[in-house]
């Protein structure tokens, strides 16, 4: 029983030296190493696209944590993904201020335009579409973000053009 479990446990991903060095720099900024866990996960995700269980294992080893502790943190925060995402993450804010100005209609238009539902990725892996809670742009609604970038005061055609322009 024990041996099967061990056999099933994924091998830890080997992180590049550059990534390791960047994580060490983050650790040095905190009074306790664990403070750097979110920063480390962000660095790893930026490089690898997502944090799959073997990667979480590697991060756990660096911080002296049980892999379950890292997975628990990963699932708590919306910005971390344990599965690969599309090349571009398109997230429409659907909280109240944006919805009052048509965000949910806009999201539906994008779903139709891309032929996928919110939460899905286009078959070519180009775009992951999703909705999101308030992004702090209520005065410039409706809006969406593509990766890190905000695009505000949108309408259907402008949003479609943005998405079509993504490589």
């Amino acid at each position: 029983m024990v041996s099967t479990l061990v056999a099933q446990a994924p091998e830890a991903t080997v992180l590049s030296d550059e990534l390791r060095a960047a994580i060490d720099r983050e650790i040095a900024r905190f009074p306790e190493p664990r403070g750097a866990l979110l920063a480390a996960l962000r660095l790893v995700q930026d490089e690898l696209g997502c944090i799959a269980p073997p990667t979480a294992r590697a991060v756990a080893e660096i911080f002296g944590l049980h892999p379950a502790e890292v997975l628990e943190v990963l699932s708590f925060y919306n910005l971390f993904h344990t599965e690969p995402q599309g090349r571009h993450e398109v997230r429409v804010c659907t909280n109240l201020a944006c919805s009052l100005r048509g965000a949910r209609t806009l999201l539906r238009e994008l779903e139709e335009h891309l032929g996928i539902r919110a939460g899905q990725t286009t078959p070519d892996g180009r775009v992951t579409l999703g909705h999101e809670e308030c992004l702090g742009a209520c005065g410039y609604a409706p809006m969406l973000r593509i990766g890190d970038r905000y695009h505000e005061e949108l309408d259907g055609p402008a949003a479609r053009a943005l998405v079509d322009g993504l490589p």
């Binding site: 900024r29 905190f30 306790e32 664990r34 403070g35 750097a36 866990l37 979110l38 920063a39 996960l41 962000r42 911080f63 628990e72 943190v73 708590f76 925060y77 919306n78 910005l79 971390f80 809670e133």
Partner: peptide, 26 residues
Amino acid sequence: VLVRGAGAYICGEETGLLESLEGKKG
């Protein structure tokens, strides 16, 4: 020291924020 959150409303509550700052669930 600049620290970036990772998407969780409850980390705005000050003690949730402190937990997050320590690398935990908020």
